[in-house]
């Protein structure tokens, strides 16, 4: 995607030297390390290479502690990169920005605001919209996530799944280009999770929405993703990328043999990755995602 810039601001030196930054999100040898408890250096993620095109839906899949959330935080701009190059639309990421919105596992709604005003919260914080417009926009999003009639309810009156819908609506309200989702459906019940996944997929079919979705649930990754990046733990590395070529919408796909074949392929990769990681680090505590099938 060619980006015509009128800006005369000096660009970061990094991107000048990079030929391959035509991707929307580009990570090259991104590592994150921090000082551990005993002054040793813990490498959370190790030389991650990843490039994502605009409009893609990418899942980061791996066991707990593989650094997938760390990578998400780096992309969100919460954590600095220790080494490597990380750019969004050709510009190095160094802070949170209005072009990215994050959806966490906990809904994180303000308990003293009703649902409508929880959805306007993100708009207020980024300060990009007048109050009245924000309310209209929030109303549209509640419509989209099917909660229009609960606009005046308070979070404690909603179920976990509904709260998570409000959370999603709040993130979408700011019209993010890049949606960062950190196991957003991990704490809702299975039925609700499936319907939320389908809704998310429907919302993300808009070509301008790019999504980076972190999960340890193989079925979820195969259902949602255009591409799955499989990570190993300690340190987190991408061991394999799997492109999921299932037609969308995928509402009826879960029992089809193609779907199950992908699930099998991915869980095979995870298992062998865990085995080699366990061997090389000589650890017994190897864990791989909760391989459901």
């Amino acid at each position: 995607m060619a980006i015509a810039r009128v800006s005369t601001l000096p660009e970061t030196p990094v991107e000048a030297g990079l030929g391959g930054t035509s991707s929307y999100l580009y990570a090259s040898k991104v590592s994150v390390a921090y000082a551990g408890r005993d002054a040793d250096i813990v490498t959370a993620i190790d030389r991650i290479d990843l490039s994502i095109d605009r409009g893609e839906f990418v899942c980061l899949l791996g066991p707990s502690g593989c650094g997938k959330t760390t990578f998400l935080n780096v992309v969100a701009g919460f954590l600095p990169v220790s080494s490597g190059v990380l750019t969004l639309k050709g510009k190095a990421i160094d802070r949170p920005g209005p072009d990215r919105a994050m959806v966490f596992q906990q809904p994180g709604l303000l308990p003293w605001r009703d649902v409508l005003h929880n959805v306007t919260f993100g708009l207020e914080m980024s300060g990009r919209m007048r109050r009245r417009e924000a309310i209209v926009r929030a109303g549209e999003l509640l419509e989209l996530v099917g909660l229009a009639e609960f606009a005046r309810s308070f979070p404690h009156q909603l179920s976990g799944g509904m709260q998570q819908r409000v959370n999603l609506a709040r993130a979408l309200a700011v019209r993010p280009e890049l949606l960062l989702l950190d196991e957003p459906f991990a704490s809702v019940d299975a039925q609700t999770r499936e319907s939320l996944q389908a809704e998310l997929l429907a919302i993300c079919k808009a070509p301008e929405v790019t999504a980076l979705f972190v999960t340890h649930d193989i079925g979820e990754a195969v259902f949602l993703a255009d591409r799955i990046c499989i990570l190993t733990s300690r340190p987190g590395r991408i061991v394999r990328e799997v492109r999921v070529r299932l037609p969308k919408p995928r509402d009826e796909v879960r029992l089809k043999p193609e779907f199950l074949a992908y699930v099998q392929e991915v869980s095979g990769v995870l298992r062998s990755a865990a085995a080699t990681a366990g061997k090389s680090e000589n650890r017994e505590e190897k864990r791989h995602g909760d391989d459901r099938p």
């Binding site: 919460f78 209005p98 966490f104 994180g108 003293w112 914080m125 980024s126």
Partner: peptide, 23 residues
Amino acid sequence: HLLRVARCFGASDLKIFRTIALP
């Protein structure tokens, strides 16, 4: 967690104070 969510939306300290800390 609420503070993290607010920062995520690029909230300034003053806004966080007004919309989260105070209420």
